[in-house]
């Protein structure tokens, strides 16, 4: 009886707490939220760029930022193509982890060219089922570049899933690249994973 009562009281307390907490409708993403996500992500990236750490440490931190703000799962799936649907769960998880590290190194090496630059987030608009956040990258001695980020909440969280730099779409180029690597490994996902751990 006592335990029951305690359970009941506990339940009441939970309901009370839940009522006090701001109720979040199933991840309502809006333009402001998408804009803020990219602002935060860029702020963290520039902190790393300006930290002057050794490259290897920077790449690890880029990987962590990528994992925090991007939908790594859908990006990794899209890059792998139809093989993603046939993949064994454990093999896919290992591939996804290797892919994340590869992105951190490959794009990290590019980010180092961004020292002394700035990226200004200029707006956000709804597009299809997601949001497009527009920004302009100001690099030394180069015409400003348009960089667009596609942000979605369809993973259950607000995350970006594509970056388009002057029309060059990251998902499309990684699909071609990972596809070529998979073909080179004769379609073996574990072999691709091993190659990705070395690449980038």
């Amino acid at each position: 009886m006592r335990t029951d009562r305690r359970g009941f009281l506990g339940l009441i307390a939970c309901v009370g707490v839940a009522a006090v907490l701001p109720w979040r409708p199933a991840h309502a993403l809006d333009a402001n939220g998408a804009h803020a996500l990219i602002d935060r992500s860029l702020e963290e990236v520039y902190q790393v760029i300006n930290s002057g750490q050794p490259a290897a440490q920077m790449y690890q931190q880029f990987e962590a930022i990528f994992a925090r703000y991007a939908d790594v799962d859908v990006i990794a799936r899209s890059a792998l193509g139809p093989a993603a649907r046939q993949a064994d769960a454990a093999e896919f998880a290992a591939y996804r982890q290797a892919f994340q590290g590869y992105v951190g190194r490959k794009y990290g090496a590019r980010f180092r060219e961004f020292i002394g630059s700035r990226i200004e987030v200029t707006g956000a608009r709804p597009l299809k089922s997601f949001f497009a956040v527009t920004s302009v990258a100001h690099l030394n001695g180069r015409a400003p570049m348009e960089v667009e980020w596609h942000v979605s909440n369809r993973s259950g969280q607000d995350l970006y899933f594509n970056i388009i730099i002057e029309g060059v779409n990251m998902l499309a180029s990684e699909r071609a690249e990972i596809g070529a690597m998979l073909a080179r490994e004769r379609g073996s996902l574990p072999a691709l994973t091993a190659a990705l751990q070395q690449a980038g």
């Binding site: 859908v74 089922s129 779409n169 998902l171």
Partner: peptide, 13 residues
């Protein structure tokens, strides 16, 4: 057209 991977039945079930 802009690509939406969440609607890509090739990669997502």
């Amino acid at each position: 057209d802009d690509y939406d991977p969440y609607d890509d039945a090739q990669v997502l079930d």
